[in-house]
Protein backbone atom coordinates (compact mmCIF):
# COMPACT_ATOMS: atom_id res chain seq x y z
CA UNK A 1 0.00 0.00 0.00
CA UNK A 2 2.73 2.44 1.05
CA UNK A 3 4.58 1.56 -2.11
CA UNK A 4 1.50 2.30 -4.19
CA UNK A 5 1.20 5.76 -2.62
CA UNK A 6 4.87 6.30 -3.34
CA UNK A 7 4.49 5.46 -7.02
CA UNK A 8 1.48 7.72 -7.31
CA UNK A 9 3.42 10.56 -5.68
CA UNK A 10 6.34 10.07 -8.00
CA UNK A 11 4.02 10.01 -10.98
CA UNK A 12 2.43 13.29 -9.93
CA UNK A 13 5.85 14.87 -9.55
CA UNK A 14 6.80 13.84 -13.10
CA UNK A 15 3.50 15.07 -14.52
CA UNK A 16 3.78 18.33 -12.60
CA UNK A 17 7.22 19.12 -13.94
CA UNK A 18 6.29 18.03 -17.47
CA UNK A 19 3.27 20.34 -17.46
CA UNK A 20 5.37 23.13 -16.11
CA UNK A 21 8.36 22.73 -18.41
CA UNK A 22 7.27 24.95 -21.34
CA UNK A 23 6.46 27.80 -18.98
CA UNK A 24 9.63 27.18 -16.98
CA UNK A 25 11.82 27.22 -20.09
CA UNK A 26 10.28 30.43 -21.42
CA UNK A 27 10.32 32.20 -18.07
CA UNK A 28 13.94 31.24 -17.62
CA UNK A 29 14.84 32.41 -21.12
CA UNK A 30 13.01 35.74 -21.02
CA UNK A 31 12.81 36.71 -17.35
CA UNK A 32 15.20 34.99 -14.98
CA UNK A 33 18.24 34.50 -17.17
CA UNK A 34 18.01 38.07 -18.60
CA UNK A 35 17.75 39.46 -15.06
CA UNK A 36 20.98 37.73 -14.10
CA UNK A 37 22.60 38.56 -17.42
CA UNK A 38 21.67 42.21 -16.86
CA UNK A 39 23.39 42.14 -13.48
CA UNK A 40 26.43 40.52 -15.12
CA UNK A 41 26.55 43.05 -17.98
CA UNK A 42 26.29 45.92 -15.52
CA UNK A 43 29.58 44.86 -13.92
CA UNK A 44 31.64 45.07 -17.13
CA UNK A 45 32.91 47.95 -19.18
CA UNK A 46 31.60 48.68 -22.63
CA UNK A 47 33.76 46.99 -25.22
CA UNK A 48 35.16 48.95 -28.12
CA UNK A 49 37.39 47.74 -30.89
CA UNK A 50 40.49 48.92 -29.07
CA UNK A 51 39.43 48.13 -25.50
CA UNK A 52 37.77 44.77 -24.95
CA UNK A 53 35.23 44.50 -22.16
CA UNK A 54 36.69 44.04 -18.75
CA UNK A 55 35.37 43.62 -15.25
CA UNK A 56 34.88 47.00 -13.61
CA UNK A 57 32.75 46.10 -10.57
CA UNK A 58 30.49 48.93 -9.48
CA UNK A 59 32.00 51.51 -11.81
CA UNK A 60 28.95 51.70 -14.09
CA UNK A 61 26.84 52.41 -11.05
CA UNK A 62 29.14 55.14 -9.75
CA UNK A 63 29.15 56.62 -13.27
CA UNK A 64 25.38 56.73 -13.16
CA UNK A 65 25.32 58.34 -9.74
CA UNK A 66 27.74 60.97 -11.02
CA UNK A 67 25.63 61.63 -14.11
CA UNK A 68 23.36 64.67 -13.65
CA UNK A 69 21.05 63.41 -16.42
CA UNK A 70 20.44 60.24 -14.44
CA UNK A 71 19.32 62.23 -11.40
CA UNK A 72 17.16 64.47 -13.57
CA UNK A 73 15.51 61.40 -15.08
CA UNK A 74 14.96 59.91 -11.62
CA UNK A 75 13.44 63.18 -10.45
CA UNK A 76 11.21 63.30 -13.54
CA UNK A 77 10.04 59.77 -12.94
CA UNK A 78 9.31 60.51 -9.28
CA UNK A 79 7.23 63.53 -10.30
CA UNK A 80 5.58 61.40 -12.98
CA UNK A 81 4.66 58.77 -10.36
CA UNK A 82 3.68 61.27 -7.68
CA UNK A 83 1.34 63.02 -10.12
CA UNK A 84 -0.15 60.20 -12.16
CA UNK A 85 -0.83 57.76 -9.30
CA UNK A 86 -2.98 59.90 -6.97
CA UNK A 87 -4.63 61.99 -9.69
CA UNK A 88 -5.66 59.06 -11.85
CA UNK A 89 -6.91 57.14 -8.79
CA UNK A 90 -8.91 60.16 -7.64
CA UNK A 91 -10.43 60.71 -11.08
CA UNK A 92 -11.13 56.98 -11.44
CA UNK A 93 -12.97 56.99 -8.14
CA UNK A 94 -15.07 59.99 -9.17
CA UNK A 95 -15.82 58.37 -12.52
CA UNK A 96 -16.87 55.12 -10.85
CA UNK A 97 -19.15 56.86 -8.34
CA UNK A 98 -20.79 58.79 -11.19
CA UNK A 99 -20.98 55.88 -13.58
CA UNK A 100 -22.60 53.84 -10.81
CA UNK A 101 -25.21 56.43 -9.80
CA UNK A 102 -28.52 56.95 -11.51
CA UNK A 103 -27.73 59.69 -13.97
CA UNK A 104 -29.07 60.21 -17.49
CA UNK A 105 -26.94 58.91 -20.39
CA UNK A 106 -25.05 56.58 -18.09
CA UNK A 107 -24.09 54.27 -20.96
CA UNK A 108 -22.49 57.13 -22.87
CA UNK A 109 -20.68 58.34 -19.76
CA UNK A 110 -19.19 54.92 -19.04
CA UNK A 111 -18.11 54.44 -22.65
CA UNK A 112 -16.53 57.88 -22.78
CA UNK A 113 -14.52 57.23 -19.62
CA UNK A 114 -13.32 53.81 -20.68
CA UNK A 115 -12.56 54.34 -24.39
CA UNK A 116 -9.02 55.78 -23.99
CA UNK A 117 -8.04 52.50 -22.35
CA UNK A 118 -8.44 50.49 -25.55
CA UNK A 119 -6.28 52.85 -27.62
CA UNK A 120 -2.57 52.25 -28.15
CA UNK A 121 -0.43 54.77 -26.28
CA UNK A 122 1.08 55.77 -29.64
CA UNK A 123 -2.36 56.62 -31.02
CA UNK A 124 -3.24 58.51 -27.84
CA UNK A 125 -0.06 60.54 -28.23
CA UNK A 126 -1.01 61.38 -31.83
CA UNK A 127 -4.43 62.59 -30.69
CA UNK A 128 -2.89 64.80 -28.01
CA UNK A 129 -0.29 66.18 -30.38
CA UNK A 130 -3.19 67.98 -31.98
CA UNK A 131 -4.00 69.62 -28.66
CA UNK A 132 -0.48 70.63 -27.75
CA UNK A 133 0.91 71.94 -31.07
CA UNK A 134 1.78 75.61 -30.60
CA UNK A 135 -0.26 78.08 -32.59
CA UNK A 136 -2.39 75.49 -34.38
CA UNK A 137 -3.25 73.21 -31.45
CA UNK A 138 -6.62 73.08 -29.75
CA UNK A 139 -5.29 74.35 -26.40
CA UNK A 140 -3.72 77.40 -28.00
CA UNK A 141 -6.85 78.12 -29.99
CA UNK A 142 -8.98 77.96 -26.85
CA UNK A 143 -6.41 80.12 -25.06
CA UNK A 144 -6.44 82.71 -27.83
CA UNK A 145 -10.21 83.09 -27.39
CA UNK A 146 -9.42 84.44 -23.95
CA UNK A 147 -6.51 86.48 -25.21
CA UNK A 148 -3.83 84.17 -23.78
CA UNK A 149 -0.46 83.97 -25.55
CA UNK A 150 0.55 80.90 -27.52
CA UNK A 151 2.30 78.30 -25.37
CA UNK A 152 4.61 75.62 -26.69
CA UNK A 153 3.46 72.96 -24.24
CA UNK A 154 5.80 70.25 -25.45
CA UNK A 155 8.71 72.49 -26.33
CA UNK A 156 9.51 74.16 -23.02
CA UNK A 157 11.05 72.41 -20.01
CA UNK A 158 8.49 73.76 -17.52
CA UNK A 159 5.46 72.21 -19.21
CA UNK A 160 6.72 69.21 -21.24
CA UNK A 161 6.62 66.69 -18.40
CA UNK A 162 3.16 67.83 -17.35
CA UNK A 163 1.87 67.50 -20.89
CA UNK A 164 3.11 63.90 -20.82
CA UNK A 165 1.55 63.32 -17.39
CA UNK A 166 -1.85 64.50 -18.58
CA UNK A 167 -1.86 61.98 -21.43
CA UNK A 168 -1.00 59.16 -19.00
CA UNK A 169 -3.80 60.15 -16.62
CA UNK A 170 -6.22 60.38 -19.53
CA UNK A 171 -5.20 56.91 -20.64
CA UNK A 172 -5.30 55.04 -17.32
CA UNK A 173 -8.09 56.67 -15.27
CA UNK A 174 -10.84 54.87 -17.19
CA UNK A 175 -9.05 51.56 -16.72
CA UNK A 176 -8.89 52.02 -12.95
CA UNK A 177 -12.53 53.11 -12.93
CA UNK A 178 -13.52 49.60 -14.00
CA UNK A 179 -12.04 48.08 -10.82
CA UNK A 180 -13.85 50.61 -8.65
CA UNK A 181 -17.09 49.97 -10.53
CA UNK A 182 -16.79 46.25 -9.86
CA UNK A 183 -16.06 46.84 -6.19
CA UNK A 184 -18.99 49.27 -5.87
CA UNK A 185 -21.35 46.65 -7.19
CA UNK A 186 -20.37 44.23 -4.45
CA UNK A 187 -21.39 46.65 -1.66
CA UNK A 188 -24.70 45.31 -0.31
CA UNK A 189 -27.83 47.45 -0.78
CA UNK A 190 -28.83 47.21 2.90
CA UNK A 191 -25.85 49.32 3.94
CA UNK A 192 -27.32 52.18 1.92
CA UNK A 193 -30.77 51.55 3.42
CA UNK A 194 -29.38 51.45 6.95
CA UNK A 195 -27.53 54.71 6.33
CA UNK A 196 -30.76 56.28 5.02
CA UNK A 197 -32.70 55.17 8.12
CA UNK A 198 -30.01 56.64 10.34
CA UNK A 199 -30.44 59.88 8.42
CA UNK A 200 -26.88 59.89 7.11
CA UNK A 201 -26.31 62.18 4.14
CA UNK A 202 -25.04 60.82 0.86
CA UNK A 203 -21.71 62.48 1.55
CA UNK A 204 -21.39 60.79 4.94
CA UNK A 205 -22.43 57.46 3.45
CA UNK A 206 -19.76 57.77 0.75
CA UNK A 207 -17.04 58.86 3.14
CA UNK A 208 -17.77 56.54 6.03
CA UNK A 209 -19.00 53.38 4.29
CA UNK A 210 -18.14 53.33 0.59
CA UNK A 211 -14.56 54.61 0.75
CA UNK A 212 -13.41 52.22 3.53
CA UNK A 213 -14.97 49.30 1.66
CA UNK A 214 -13.08 50.34 -1.46
CA UNK A 215 -9.73 50.32 0.33
CA UNK A 216 -8.55 46.89 -0.96
CA UNK A 217 -9.41 47.98 -4.52
CA UNK A 218 -7.51 51.22 -4.00
CA UNK A 219 -4.41 49.34 -2.90
CA UNK A 220 -4.67 46.98 -5.87
CA UNK A 221 -5.00 49.94 -8.23
CA UNK A 222 -2.12 51.72 -6.53
CA UNK A 223 0.26 48.83 -7.22
CA UNK A 224 -0.89 48.79 -10.84
CA UNK A 225 -0.47 52.55 -11.15
CA UNK A 226 3.01 52.28 -9.69
CA UNK A 227 4.02 49.67 -12.24
CA UNK A 228 2.49 51.85 -14.98
CA UNK A 229 4.60 54.79 -13.87
CA UNK A 230 7.63 52.72 -14.84
CA UNK A 231 6.36 51.19 -18.06
CA UNK A 232 4.01 53.75 -19.67
CA UNK A 233 6.52 55.69 -21.77
CA UNK A 234 5.40 54.99 -25.35
CA UNK A 235 3.94 58.47 -25.77
CA UNK A 236 7.35 60.04 -25.14
CA UNK A 237 8.45 58.72 -28.53
CA UNK A 238 5.76 60.83 -30.23
CA UNK A 239 5.33 63.83 -27.96
CA UNK A 240 8.72 64.94 -26.66
CA UNK A 241 11.40 62.28 -27.18
CA UNK A 242 12.37 63.06 -23.60
CA UNK A 243 13.14 66.66 -24.39
CA UNK A 244 13.55 69.57 -24.28
CA UNK A 245 16.87 69.23 -22.44
CA UNK A 246 15.74 65.91 -20.92
CA UNK A 247 12.95 67.75 -19.09
CA UNK A 248 10.43 65.00 -19.80
CA UNK A 249 12.74 61.99 -19.96
CA UNK A 250 11.68 58.98 -17.88
CA UNK A 251 13.82 56.07 -16.69
CA UNK A 252 12.66 53.39 -19.10
CA UNK A 253 13.04 55.80 -22.02
CA UNK A 254 16.54 56.62 -20.83
CA UNK A 255 17.36 52.90 -20.65
CA UNK A 256 16.12 52.47 -24.20
CA UNK A 257 18.11 55.47 -25.39
CA UNK A 258 21.23 54.35 -23.60
CA UNK A 259 21.06 50.85 -25.09
CA UNK A 260 19.68 51.44 -28.56
CA UNK A 261 20.65 55.00 -29.45
CA UNK A 262 23.99 55.38 -27.61
CA UNK A 263 24.80 51.61 -27.72
CA UNK A 264 25.94 51.71 -24.12
CA UNK A 265 24.59 48.41 -22.80
CA UNK A 266 26.54 48.33 -19.50
CA UNK A 267 25.09 51.60 -18.22
CA UNK A 268 21.64 50.65 -19.47
CA UNK A 269 22.04 47.36 -17.59
CA UNK A 270 23.07 49.13 -14.40
CA UNK A 271 19.98 51.32 -14.64
CA UNK A 272 17.81 48.27 -15.32
CA UNK A 273 19.12 46.63 -12.16
CA UNK A 274 18.20 49.71 -10.12
CA UNK A 275 14.68 49.61 -11.54
CA UNK A 276 14.42 45.89 -10.79
CA UNK A 277 15.46 46.54 -7.18
CA UNK A 278 12.72 49.14 -6.80
CA UNK A 279 10.15 46.82 -8.39
CA UNK A 280 11.36 44.02 -6.12
CA UNK A 281 10.76 46.16 -3.05
CA UNK A 282 7.27 46.99 -4.31
CA UNK A 283 6.62 43.29 -4.88
CA UNK A 284 7.86 42.47 -1.40
CA UNK A 285 5.56 45.03 0.18
CA UNK A 286 2.66 43.84 -1.94
CA UNK A 287 3.03 40.15 -1.15
CA UNK A 288 3.81 40.40 2.54
CA UNK A 289 2.34 43.52 4.05
CA UNK A 290 -0.58 44.48 1.78
CA UNK A 291 -1.91 41.01 1.05
CA UNK A 292 -2.20 40.32 4.75
CA UNK A 293 -3.87 43.60 5.57
CA UNK A 294 -6.47 43.81 2.85
CA UNK A 295 -8.07 40.38 3.10
CA UNK A 296 -10.58 41.33 5.71
CA UNK A 297 -13.71 40.50 3.77
Amino acid sequence: MAEHVNIERRRQAIYGWLLLSPAAILLTTFAFYPSIATLWTSLFSRGTRRNPTEFVGGENYTDLFADPTFWLVVKNNLIYAAATIPISIFIALGMALWANSKIPARGFVRTAYFTPTVLPMIAAANLWLFFYTPGLGVLDQIGSLFGLPSINWLGQPETALWAVIIVTIWKEAGFFMIFYLAALQTIPEDLKEAADIEGASRFTYTRRIVLPLLMPTTLFIMVNALINSVKLIDHLFILTKGGPNDASKLILYYIWEMAFAFFDAPHAAAMTILVLIVLGIVAGIKFTYLDKRTHYQ
Partner: peptide, 17 residues
Protein backbone atom coordinates in the same frame (compact mmCIF):
# COMPACT_ATOMS: atom_id res chain seq x y z
CA UNK B 1 7.95 37.43 -9.20
CA UNK B 2 7.66 37.72 -12.95
CA UNK B 3 4.58 39.92 -12.38
CA UNK B 4 7.08 42.54 -11.28
CA UNK B 5 10.07 41.72 -13.50
CA UNK B 6 8.39 43.44 -16.41
CA UNK B 7 9.38 42.29 -19.89
CA UNK B 8 9.51 46.00 -20.73
CA UNK B 9 12.35 46.56 -18.27
CA UNK B 10 14.48 43.69 -19.58
CA UNK B 11 14.58 45.00 -23.14
CA UNK B 12 18.37 45.10 -23.32
CA UNK B 13 19.07 41.47 -22.48
CA UNK B 14 15.92 40.16 -24.14
CA UNK B 15 17.08 41.80 -27.33
CA UNK B 16 20.42 39.99 -27.01
CA UNK B 17 18.58 36.73 -26.31
Amino acid sequence: MQLFILPEVLIVENYVM
